[in-house]
Design a protein around this nucleic acid. Sequence first.
DNA 1: AGACGGTTAGACATTGATTGTCCATCTGTC
DNA 2: GACAGATGGACAATCAATGTCTAACCGTCT
Lengths: 193, 193
Amino acid sequence: MNQSDQKSEAILDAALPVFVRHGFRKTSMTDIARAAGMSRAALYLSFSSKEELFRAGSARAHARAMRKVEAALAGDGDVFSRIEMAIAAFQRELIAPFAGSGDAAELFETNMALSRDVTLAARAELVALLAQALTNALATGAITLDALHATPVDVAAIIIAAMEGIKDAQVAGHDLLEDTRLFLRLLRKALSR
Amino acid sequence: MNQSDQKSEAILDAALPVFVRHGFRKTSMTDIARAAGMSRAALYLSFSSKEELFRAGSARAHARAMRKVEAALAGDGDVFSRIEMAIAAFQRELIAPFAGSGDAAELFETNMALSRDVTLAARAELVALLAQALTNALATGAITLDALHATPVDVAAIIIAAMEGIKDAQVAGHDLLEDTRLFLRLLRKALSR
DNA sequence: AGACGGTTAGACATTGATTGTCCATCTGTC
DNA sequence: GACAGATGGACAATCAATGTCTAACCGTCT
Protein backbone atom coordinates (compact mmCIF):
# COMPACT_ATOMS: atom_id res chain seq x y z
CA MET A 1 0.00 0.00 0.00
CA ASN A 2 1.56 3.28 -1.10
CA GLN A 3 1.51 6.54 0.76
CA SER A 4 -1.39 8.00 -1.14
CA ASP A 5 -3.52 4.94 -0.43
CA GLN A 6 -2.66 5.14 3.24
CA LYS A 7 -3.84 8.75 3.29
CA SER A 8 -7.05 7.83 1.54
CA GLU A 9 -7.66 5.06 4.06
CA ALA A 10 -7.12 7.47 6.93
CA ILE A 11 -9.56 9.92 5.38
CA LEU A 12 -12.22 7.25 4.95
CA ASP A 13 -11.67 6.10 8.53
CA ALA A 14 -12.22 9.66 9.70
CA ALA A 15 -15.17 10.30 7.41
CA LEU A 16 -17.24 7.27 8.39
CA PRO A 17 -18.20 8.43 11.89
CA VAL A 18 -18.98 11.89 10.52
CA PHE A 19 -21.34 10.47 7.93
CA VAL A 20 -22.86 8.24 10.60
CA ARG A 21 -23.39 11.23 12.85
CA HIS A 22 -24.84 13.71 10.38
CA GLY A 23 -25.79 11.75 7.28
CA PHE A 24 -24.49 12.49 3.81
CA ARG A 25 -26.23 15.75 3.08
CA LYS A 26 -25.41 17.48 6.36
CA THR A 27 -21.79 16.41 6.28
CA SER A 28 -19.59 19.00 4.62
CA MET A 29 -16.10 18.55 3.21
CA THR A 30 -14.99 20.94 5.93
CA ASP A 31 -16.37 18.53 8.53
CA ILE A 32 -14.49 15.62 6.99
CA ALA A 33 -11.26 17.57 6.63
CA ARG A 34 -11.45 18.57 10.29
CA ALA A 35 -12.12 14.99 11.34
CA ALA A 36 -9.21 13.78 9.22
CA GLY A 37 -6.94 16.46 10.67
CA MET A 38 -6.13 18.15 7.39
CA SER A 39 -7.09 21.12 5.29
CA ARG A 40 -9.96 21.06 2.84
CA ALA A 41 -7.45 21.60 0.05
CA ALA A 42 -5.54 18.48 1.06
CA LEU A 43 -8.78 16.53 1.13
CA TYR A 44 -9.38 17.44 -2.51
CA LEU A 45 -5.90 16.12 -3.34
CA SER A 46 -7.12 12.64 -2.38
CA PHE A 47 -10.76 12.82 -3.49
CA SER A 48 -11.98 15.12 -6.19
CA SER A 49 -15.50 15.39 -4.80
CA LYS A 50 -17.66 14.48 -1.84
CA GLU A 51 -19.46 11.93 -3.99
CA GLU A 52 -16.22 10.25 -5.03
CA LEU A 53 -15.14 10.09 -1.41
CA PHE A 54 -18.40 8.44 -0.46
CA ARG A 55 -18.12 5.98 -3.34
CA ALA A 56 -14.58 5.07 -2.27
CA GLY A 57 -15.81 4.46 1.26
CA SER A 58 -18.64 2.31 0.03
CA ALA A 59 -16.35 0.34 -2.27
CA ARG A 60 -13.88 -0.29 0.52
CA ALA A 61 -16.61 -1.40 2.91
CA HIS A 62 -18.04 -3.77 0.32
CA ALA A 63 -14.61 -5.23 -0.50
CA ARG A 64 -13.92 -5.77 3.19
CA ALA A 65 -17.31 -7.32 3.70
CA MET A 66 -16.84 -9.77 0.86
CA ARG A 67 -13.48 -10.87 2.21
CA LYS A 68 -15.07 -11.57 5.58
CA VAL A 69 -17.94 -13.39 3.90
CA GLU A 70 -15.56 -15.65 2.00
CA ALA A 71 -13.66 -16.41 5.18
CA ALA A 72 -16.87 -17.26 6.99
CA LEU A 73 -18.04 -19.63 4.25
CA ALA A 74 -14.66 -21.34 4.28
CA GLY A 75 -14.90 -21.93 8.04
CA ASP A 76 -16.05 -24.82 10.16
CA GLY A 77 -19.52 -26.06 10.94
CA ASP A 78 -22.50 -27.16 8.87
CA VAL A 79 -23.87 -25.18 5.92
CA PHE A 80 -26.31 -23.31 8.07
CA SER A 81 -23.85 -22.07 10.61
CA ARG A 82 -21.43 -21.07 7.85
CA ILE A 83 -24.18 -19.18 6.08
CA GLU A 84 -25.15 -17.59 9.36
CA MET A 85 -21.55 -16.50 9.93
CA ALA A 86 -21.33 -15.17 6.39
CA ILE A 87 -24.47 -13.10 6.73
CA ALA A 88 -23.43 -11.89 10.15
CA ALA A 89 -20.12 -10.75 8.66
CA PHE A 90 -21.88 -8.99 5.78
CA GLN A 91 -24.19 -7.18 8.18
CA ARG A 92 -21.41 -6.33 10.60
CA GLU A 93 -19.43 -4.62 7.85
CA LEU A 94 -22.18 -2.94 5.86
CA ILE A 95 -25.22 -2.39 8.04
CA ALA A 96 -24.29 -2.37 11.70
CA PRO A 97 -22.00 0.68 11.37
CA PHE A 98 -25.07 2.74 10.44
CA ALA A 99 -27.57 1.10 12.73
CA GLY A 100 -27.15 3.76 15.39
CA SER A 101 -27.43 6.64 12.97
CA GLY A 102 -30.59 8.67 12.82
CA ASP A 103 -29.74 9.13 9.17
CA ALA A 104 -29.29 5.46 8.33
CA ALA A 105 -32.06 5.56 5.75
CA GLU A 106 -30.57 8.60 4.03
CA LEU A 107 -27.15 6.94 3.99
CA PHE A 108 -28.46 3.71 2.44
CA GLU A 109 -30.33 5.81 -0.08
CA THR A 110 -27.24 7.83 -0.91
CA ASN A 111 -25.29 4.63 -1.25
CA MET A 112 -27.76 3.28 -3.76
CA ALA A 113 -27.66 6.55 -5.68
CA LEU A 114 -23.86 6.85 -5.76
CA SER A 115 -22.61 3.27 -5.48
CA ARG A 116 -25.34 1.21 -7.03
CA ASP A 117 -22.88 -0.78 -9.16
CA VAL A 118 -20.60 -1.79 -6.30
CA THR A 119 -23.54 -2.56 -4.05
CA LEU A 120 -25.33 -4.72 -6.58
CA ALA A 121 -22.12 -6.48 -7.56
CA ALA A 122 -21.40 -7.37 -3.95
CA ARG A 123 -24.92 -8.58 -3.49
CA ALA A 124 -24.63 -10.71 -6.63
CA GLU A 125 -21.36 -12.17 -5.45
CA LEU A 126 -22.90 -12.95 -2.09
CA VAL A 127 -25.71 -14.79 -3.83
CA ALA A 128 -23.17 -16.75 -5.89
CA LEU A 129 -21.15 -17.68 -2.83
CA LEU A 130 -24.19 -18.80 -0.88
CA ALA A 131 -25.40 -20.77 -3.89
CA GLN A 132 -22.03 -22.50 -4.10
CA ALA A 133 -22.19 -23.42 -0.43
CA LEU A 134 -25.70 -24.76 -0.88
CA THR A 135 -24.67 -26.73 -3.94
CA ASN A 136 -21.85 -28.36 -2.00
CA ALA A 137 -24.20 -29.18 0.85
CA LEU A 138 -26.61 -30.67 -1.63
CA ALA A 139 -23.89 -32.89 -3.05
CA THR A 140 -22.96 -34.24 0.37
CA GLY A 141 -26.61 -34.75 1.23
CA ALA A 142 -26.52 -32.30 4.12
CA ILE A 143 -29.60 -30.54 2.78
CA THR A 144 -32.38 -31.27 0.34
CA LEU A 145 -34.23 -28.97 -1.99
CA ASP A 146 -36.67 -31.60 -3.23
CA ALA A 147 -39.66 -30.26 -1.38
CA LEU A 148 -38.91 -26.70 -2.48
CA HIS A 149 -38.60 -27.29 -6.22
CA ALA A 150 -35.83 -24.74 -6.26
CA THR A 151 -32.21 -24.43 -7.29
CA PRO A 152 -29.44 -23.40 -4.91
CA VAL A 153 -29.28 -20.04 -6.71
CA ASP A 154 -32.98 -19.52 -6.11
CA VAL A 155 -32.56 -20.23 -2.42
CA ALA A 156 -29.50 -18.02 -2.15
CA ALA A 157 -31.39 -15.19 -3.83
CA ILE A 158 -34.26 -15.59 -1.41
CA ILE A 159 -31.88 -15.45 1.53
CA ILE A 160 -30.41 -12.18 0.30
CA ALA A 161 -33.81 -10.72 -0.45
CA ALA A 162 -34.89 -11.53 3.07
CA MET A 163 -31.73 -9.91 4.45
CA GLU A 164 -32.54 -6.75 2.53
CA GLY A 165 -36.05 -6.70 3.88
CA ILE A 166 -34.81 -7.23 7.42
CA LYS A 167 -32.32 -4.41 6.97
CA ASP A 168 -35.09 -2.02 5.95
CA ALA A 169 -37.26 -3.14 8.86
CA GLN A 170 -34.36 -2.41 11.15
CA VAL A 171 -34.34 1.20 10.00
CA ALA A 172 -37.97 1.24 11.06
CA GLY A 173 -37.07 0.00 14.53
CA HIS A 174 -36.75 -3.78 14.33
CA ASP A 175 -33.81 -5.71 15.72
CA LEU A 176 -31.43 -6.76 12.96
CA LEU A 177 -29.74 -9.67 14.71
CA GLU A 178 -32.90 -11.11 16.16
CA ASP A 179 -34.82 -11.02 12.90
CA THR A 180 -31.84 -12.50 11.08
CA ARG A 181 -31.53 -15.39 13.50
CA LEU A 182 -35.22 -16.14 13.27
CA PHE A 183 -34.99 -16.26 9.49
CA LEU A 184 -32.02 -18.62 9.65
CA ARG A 185 -33.83 -21.00 11.98
CA LEU A 186 -36.62 -21.00 9.45
CA LEU A 187 -34.12 -21.71 6.69
CA ARG A 188 -32.54 -24.59 8.59
CA LYS A 189 -35.94 -26.18 9.07
CA ALA A 190 -36.91 -25.75 5.42
CA LEU A 191 -33.76 -27.28 3.99
CA SER A 192 -33.39 -30.21 6.38
CA ARG A 193 -34.06 -33.61 4.95
CA MET B 1 -51.97 27.12 29.72
CA ASN B 2 -53.72 28.16 26.53
CA GLN B 3 -53.71 26.33 23.24
CA SER B 4 -50.95 28.40 21.71
CA ASP B 5 -48.69 27.75 24.70
CA GLN B 6 -49.38 24.04 24.46
CA LYS B 7 -48.34 24.10 20.84
CA SER B 8 -45.18 25.98 21.67
CA GLU B 9 -44.36 23.47 24.38
CA ALA B 10 -44.83 20.60 21.95
CA ILE B 11 -42.55 22.30 19.44
CA LEU B 12 -39.84 22.82 22.02
CA ASP B 13 -40.16 19.21 23.14
CA ALA B 14 -39.69 18.10 19.55
CA ALA B 15 -36.88 20.54 18.83
CA LEU B 16 -34.65 19.62 21.77
CA PRO B 17 -33.56 16.18 20.52
CA VAL B 18 -32.98 17.63 17.06
CA PHE B 19 -30.69 20.33 18.43
CA VAL B 20 -28.96 17.70 20.55
CA ARG B 21 -28.43 15.53 17.51
CA HIS B 22 -27.22 18.09 15.01
CA GLY B 23 -26.31 21.19 16.98
CA PHE B 24 -27.83 24.62 16.37
CA ARG B 25 -26.24 25.46 13.04
CA LYS B 26 -26.95 22.17 11.30
CA THR B 27 -30.54 22.08 12.53
CA SER B 28 -32.91 23.67 10.04
CA MET B 29 -36.44 24.89 10.64
CA THR B 30 -37.49 22.15 8.24
CA ASP B 31 -35.92 19.57 10.57
CA ILE B 32 -37.76 21.00 13.55
CA ALA B 33 -41.07 21.23 11.72
CA ARG B 34 -40.76 17.61 10.66
CA ALA B 35 -39.91 16.53 14.21
CA ALA B 36 -42.88 18.48 15.53
CA GLY B 37 -45.16 16.97 12.92
CA MET B 38 -46.19 20.22 11.31
CA SER B 39 -45.40 22.43 8.34
CA ARG B 40 -42.66 25.00 8.35
CA ALA B 41 -45.33 27.66 7.94
CA ALA B 42 -47.07 26.53 11.11
CA LEU B 43 -43.77 26.60 12.94
CA TYR B 44 -43.38 30.27 12.06
CA LEU B 45 -46.84 30.91 13.50
CA SER B 46 -45.46 29.97 16.92
CA PHE B 47 -41.89 31.25 16.64
CA SER B 48 -40.87 34.04 14.34
CA SER B 49 -37.29 32.80 13.95
CA LYS B 50 -34.97 29.95 14.73
CA GLU B 51 -33.17 32.14 17.24
CA GLU B 52 -36.38 33.01 19.04
CA LEU B 53 -37.31 29.34 19.17
CA PHE B 54 -33.94 28.52 20.71
CA ARG B 55 -34.28 31.35 23.21
CA ALA B 56 -37.72 30.11 24.22
CA GLY B 57 -36.31 26.64 24.74
CA SER B 58 -33.47 27.97 26.80
CA ALA B 59 -35.78 30.12 28.88
CA ARG B 60 -38.09 27.21 29.55
CA ALA B 61 -35.23 24.94 30.54
CA HIS B 62 -33.83 27.57 32.90
CA ALA B 63 -37.23 28.22 34.48
CA ARG B 64 -37.73 24.49 34.99
CA ALA B 65 -34.28 24.11 36.43
CA MET B 66 -34.77 26.89 38.93
CA ARG B 67 -38.04 25.38 40.12
CA LYS B 68 -36.27 22.06 40.71
CA VAL B 69 -33.43 23.85 42.46
CA GLU B 70 -35.80 25.62 44.83
CA ALA B 71 -37.54 22.34 45.61
CA ALA B 72 -34.21 20.67 46.32
CA LEU B 73 -33.09 23.42 48.67
CA ALA B 74 -36.40 23.22 50.52
CA GLY B 75 -35.96 19.48 51.04
CA ASP B 76 -34.62 17.35 53.86
CA GLY B 77 -31.05 16.71 54.94
CA ASP B 78 -28.15 18.88 55.95
CA VAL B 79 -26.98 21.93 53.99
CA PHE B 80 -24.52 19.90 52.01
CA SER B 81 -26.93 17.29 50.80
CA ARG B 82 -29.49 19.96 49.95
CA ILE B 83 -26.89 21.88 47.99
CA GLU B 84 -25.85 18.66 46.31
CA MET B 85 -29.45 17.95 45.34
CA ALA B 86 -29.86 21.49 44.07
CA ILE B 87 -26.78 21.33 41.90
CA ALA B 88 -27.71 17.89 40.66
CA ALA B 89 -31.12 19.24 39.66
CA PHE B 90 -29.56 22.21 37.90
CA GLN B 91 -27.22 19.97 35.97
CA ARG B 92 -29.90 17.43 35.16
CA GLU B 93 -32.06 20.10 33.58
CA LEU B 94 -29.47 22.24 31.84
CA ILE B 95 -26.35 20.21 31.15
CA ALA B 96 -27.11 16.50 31.09
CA PRO B 97 -29.51 16.77 28.13
CA PHE B 98 -26.58 17.88 25.97
CA ALA B 99 -23.91 15.67 27.49
CA GLY B 100 -24.30 13.04 24.80
CA SER B 101 -24.23 15.52 21.94
CA GLY B 102 -21.13 15.86 19.83
CA ASP B 103 -22.20 19.47 19.45
CA ALA B 104 -22.56 20.22 23.15
CA ALA B 105 -19.91 22.93 22.99
CA GLU B 106 -21.59 24.63 20.04
CA LEU B 107 -24.95 24.49 21.82
CA PHE B 108 -23.61 26.04 25.03
CA GLU B 109 -21.92 28.68 22.92
CA THR B 110 -25.11 29.38 21.00
CA ASN B 111 -26.98 29.60 24.28
CA MET B 112 -24.56 32.20 25.59
CA ALA B 113 -24.89 34.15 22.36
CA LEU B 114 -28.68 34.06 22.18
CA SER B 115 -29.80 33.67 25.81
CA ARG B 116 -27.05 35.31 27.78
CA ASP B 117 -29.52 37.29 29.88
CA VAL B 118 -31.64 34.32 30.93
CA THR B 119 -28.58 32.20 31.57
CA LEU B 120 -26.83 34.78 33.70
CA ALA B 121 -30.03 35.58 35.58
CA ALA B 122 -30.54 31.92 36.42
CA ARG B 123 -26.96 31.61 37.52
CA ALA B 124 -27.31 34.69 39.70
CA GLU B 125 -30.47 33.36 41.25
CA LEU B 126 -28.75 30.06 41.94
CA VAL B 127 -25.97 31.91 43.70
CA ALA B 128 -28.50 33.81 45.77
CA LEU B 129 -30.36 30.65 46.72
CA LEU B 130 -27.20 28.84 47.72
CA ALA B 131 -26.04 31.86 49.67
CA GLN B 132 -29.34 31.90 51.51
CA ALA B 133 -29.00 28.22 52.39
CA LEU B 134 -25.46 28.80 53.61
CA THR B 135 -26.56 31.80 55.67
CA ASN B 136 -29.21 29.71 57.37
CA ALA B 137 -26.73 26.94 58.05
CA LEU B 138 -24.37 29.50 59.49
CA ALA B 139 -27.07 30.77 61.83
CA THR B 140 -27.80 27.29 63.16
CA GLY B 141 -24.10 26.59 63.53
CA ALA B 142 -24.17 23.76 61.01
CA ILE B 143 -21.20 25.23 59.19
CA THR B 144 -18.50 27.77 59.84
CA LEU B 145 -16.83 30.23 57.55
CA ASP B 146 -14.35 31.54 60.12
CA ALA B 147 -11.32 29.87 58.62
CA LEU B 148 -12.26 30.96 55.11
CA HIS B 149 -12.70 34.66 55.77
CA ALA B 150 -15.57 34.63 53.31
CA THR B 151 -19.24 35.51 53.16
CA PRO B 152 -21.96 33.03 52.18
CA VAL B 153 -22.32 34.88 48.88
CA ASP B 154 -18.60 34.44 48.20
CA VAL B 155 -18.84 30.73 48.85
CA ALA B 156 -21.97 30.35 46.75
CA ALA B 157 -20.26 32.17 43.89
CA ILE B 158 -17.26 29.85 44.15
CA ILE B 159 -19.53 26.82 44.03
CA ILE B 160 -21.18 28.04 40.86
CA ALA B 161 -17.86 28.95 39.29
CA ALA B 162 -16.58 25.47 40.00
CA MET B 163 -19.74 23.98 38.49
CA GLU B 164 -19.13 25.98 35.33
CA GLY B 165 -15.57 24.77 35.11
CA ILE B 166 -16.63 21.18 35.64
CA LYS B 167 -19.24 21.56 32.92
CA ASP B 168 -16.61 22.75 30.45
CA ALA B 169 -14.28 19.92 31.44
CA GLN B 170 -17.10 17.50 30.78
CA VAL B 171 -17.30 18.71 27.19
CA ALA B 172 -13.62 17.81 27.00
CA GLY B 173 -14.33 14.29 28.20
CA HIS B 174 -14.53 14.41 32.00
CA ASP B 175 -17.35 12.87 34.00
CA LEU B 176 -19.79 15.51 35.21
CA LEU B 177 -21.32 13.63 38.13
CA GLU B 178 -18.05 12.28 39.42
CA ASP B 179 -16.27 15.62 39.32
CA THR B 180 -19.27 17.29 40.94
CA ARG B 181 -19.37 14.83 43.79
CA LEU B 182 -15.67 15.22 44.42
CA PHE B 183 -16.06 18.97 44.62
CA LEU B 184 -18.93 18.65 47.06
CA ARG B 185 -16.93 16.36 49.36
CA LEU B 186 -14.26 19.02 49.28
CA LEU B 187 -16.85 21.66 50.16
CA ARG B 188 -18.24 19.65 53.04
CA LYS B 189 -14.76 19.29 54.48
CA ALA B 190 -13.96 22.98 54.09
CA LEU B 191 -17.11 24.26 55.77
CA SER B 192 -17.30 21.80 58.67
CA ARG B 193 -16.58 23.20 62.09
C1' DA C 1 -74.67 27.47 3.65
C1' DG C 2 -71.13 30.83 4.86
C1' DA C 3 -67.64 32.80 7.84
C1' DC C 4 -63.80 31.67 10.51
C1' DG C 5 -59.16 30.34 12.54
C1' DG C 6 -55.67 27.40 11.94
C1' DT C 7 -53.05 24.67 8.83
C1' DT C 8 -50.83 23.34 4.57
C1' DA C 9 -47.88 23.09 0.31
C1' DG C 10 -45.61 25.68 -2.46
C1' DA C 11 -43.45 29.91 -4.43
C1' DC C 12 -40.43 33.57 -3.53
C1' DA C 13 -36.31 36.85 -2.73
C1' DT C 14 -32.52 37.10 0.17
C1' DT C 15 -29.09 35.62 2.68
C1' DG C 16 -25.69 32.37 3.90
C1' DA C 17 -23.14 28.00 3.35
C1' DT C 18 -20.83 24.57 0.44
C1' DT C 19 -18.51 23.13 -3.48
C1' DG C 20 -14.73 22.68 -6.35
C1' DT C 21 -10.78 25.39 -8.10
C1' DC C 22 -6.84 28.12 -7.79
C1' DC C 23 -2.74 30.42 -5.95
C1' DA C 24 0.91 32.13 -3.03
C1' DT C 25 3.25 30.39 0.63
C1' DC C 26 5.35 27.32 3.81
C1' DT C 27 7.74 22.90 5.33
C1' DG C 28 10.36 18.96 5.29
C1' DT C 29 13.18 15.84 2.12
C1' DC C 30 16.34 14.75 -1.32
C1' DG D 1 18.22 24.81 -4.23
C1' DA D 2 14.70 21.87 -6.26
C1' DC D 3 10.90 19.18 -5.16
C1' DA D 4 6.36 17.23 -3.46
C1' DG D 5 2.88 17.88 -0.57
C1' DA D 6 0.24 20.65 2.62
C1' DT D 7 -1.84 25.02 4.10
C1' DG D 8 -4.90 29.10 4.52
C1' DG D 9 -7.17 32.16 1.94
C1' DA D 10 -9.73 33.81 -2.06
C1' DC D 11 -12.91 32.86 -5.61
C1' DA D 12 -17.27 32.08 -8.64
C1' DA D 13 -20.91 29.05 -8.93
C1' DT D 14 -24.19 26.44 -6.95
C1' DC D 15 -27.13 24.93 -3.46
C1' DA D 16 -29.64 25.21 1.03
C1' DA D 17 -31.93 27.82 4.59
C1' DT D 18 -34.46 31.71 6.21
C1' DG D 19 -38.33 34.39 6.65
C1' DT D 20 -42.44 36.04 4.02
C1' DC D 21 -46.49 35.42 1.44
C1' DT D 22 -50.51 33.37 -0.94
C1' DA D 23 -54.07 30.30 -2.48
C1' DA D 24 -56.15 26.39 -1.02
C1' DC D 25 -57.87 23.20 2.48
C1' DC D 26 -60.34 21.52 6.65
C1' DG D 27 -63.03 21.28 10.73
C1' DT D 28 -65.96 24.21 13.78
C1' DC D 29 -69.24 27.39 14.81
C1' DT D 30 -73.42 29.93 13.80
